[in-house]
């Protein structure tokens, strides 16, 4: 590999790649490893808190339909607030504690997670719900044992988008001194040195892919019936995947008067 590097080293991109690899490997223990850990912790905490808030919000929006338009407008408006501003504004209150990064990032996930929780729950087929009632399930047991599991694929589809978005956004928090791998990016910018920036980007992308893959595996483990259903033909599962993906984009803010016929 080193001969190849020497041969093609005149190409700037290849030079960058080699330099970044060398730098990343040499600094694995000092800044790179701990920052990767911090990145993982910050994003995990944000997503977990976001989900913990999105599920009750979604449940309330399904139970009391009139709540959904204002909730949707609220989370979509929050989504439009620049992350940089939120970080700076929290700084006086939370100082340099991890909450400065976690709270805004958790708020952003709501714009993706709440609509998915609501969509997942509303698309539970009525006959499934009725069957649960007929079997003597009360509201709580029906929710926990029937409705949430059936809604799970759509909720996880939202979690996948939210986790990828969060992991790539954590880096912005490095401008207030805690952004995990973003620290490598600002460091590289301040020193006019590309290698840390490349390492930061590559590791952040890999982390996002790992989280995405992990959630796919989690979904497979949690919804064994879907796998059994899919066996006769792959086409049905693909259609379900498509439906889930289409439902993941943050959606129209609020009531849309032009939609009424």
């Amino acid at each position: 590999m080193s001969e190849a590097a020497a041969g093609a080293a005149d190409h700037p991109l290849w030079g960058w790649a080699v330099e970044s690899w060398t730098w990343g490997w040499a600094n694995l223990d000092d800044p790179v490893g701990p920052l990767l850990g911090e990145h993982l912790l910050l994003s995990l905490a944000s997503i977990a808190i976001g989900l913990a808030a999105a599920v009750p919000l979604g449940l309330l929006s399904v139970r009391y339909r009139f709540l959904y338009p204002p909730v949707l407008t609220g989370v979509n408006t929050l989504y439009a607030v620049p992350s940089l501003a939120l970080f700076f504004l929290l700084l006086p209150y939370t100082a340099f504690s991890p909450w400065t990064a976690i709270l805004p990032l958790a708020l952003y996930t709501l714009a993706i997670l709440v609509p998915n929780v609501v969509d997942g729950l509303t698309q539970v087929p009525d006959h499934v719900r009725q069957a649960a009632v007929a079997m003597g399930f009360g509201p709580l047991r029906r929710l926990l044992l029937v409705e949430l599991p059936v809604a799970l694929p759509v909720i996880i589809a939202g979690l996948r988008v939210a986790s990828v978005a969060t992991i790539s956004m954590v880096s912005v928090a490095s401008l207030v001194g805690l952004g995990g791998l973003g620290g490598l990016i600002t460091d590289g910018f301040n020193r006019d040195f590309a290698a840390p920036v490349v390492v930061g980007i590559v590791l952040s992308v890999l982390l996002a892919f790992a989280a995405d893959g992990g959630l796919v595996l989690l979904q497979r483990a949690l919804t064994p019936w879907a796998r059994r259903d899919a066996r006769p033909g792959r086409r049905r599962r693909r259609a379900a995947d498509r439906a889930a993906r289409a439902a993941t984009a943050p959606r129209p803010a609020g009531p849309q008067p032009e939609e009424s016929p």
Partner: peptide, 15 residues
Amino acid sequence: RALPTIGVLTLVVLG
């Protein structure tokens, strides 16, 4: 989607 925007920005500025 997985690319950190600030990283891309910084890298292109450095380049």
